[in-house]
Amino acid sequence: MEQKKQLDERQKWYWKKNIRFILGLLVIWAVVAYGGAILFAEPLSNIQLFGVSFAFWIAHQGAIIVFFLLILTYAIRMDRLDREYAKLLKADREG
């Protein structure tokens, strides 16, 4: 019974961390795609990036690169979280 409770605690901790990662990454997702490329497109059009405007670059290429980085970051962080979780469980078992 004690063990079951401890396991529940661990899972709760894991889930909370997971939610925090997701929210953080989704904020970036929204700011870049909907902020940078759409809501602030007009002001950002005045900034030049090589041959194109900054807003145009985000809308046509930059956002896609950011999407890739977000998905990559999530996979890496969750791998790490999985390992931490496994370590905690091991420690619990060994007392």
Partner: peptide, 16 residues
């Protein structure tokens, strides 16, 4: 951009 972002950004939602 509706197609460029729209057809790639969904993968962030899927993956997360």
């Amino acid at each position: 951009t509706i197609y460029l972002m729209g057809w790639t950004g969904g993968y962030v939602l899927l993956a997360l």
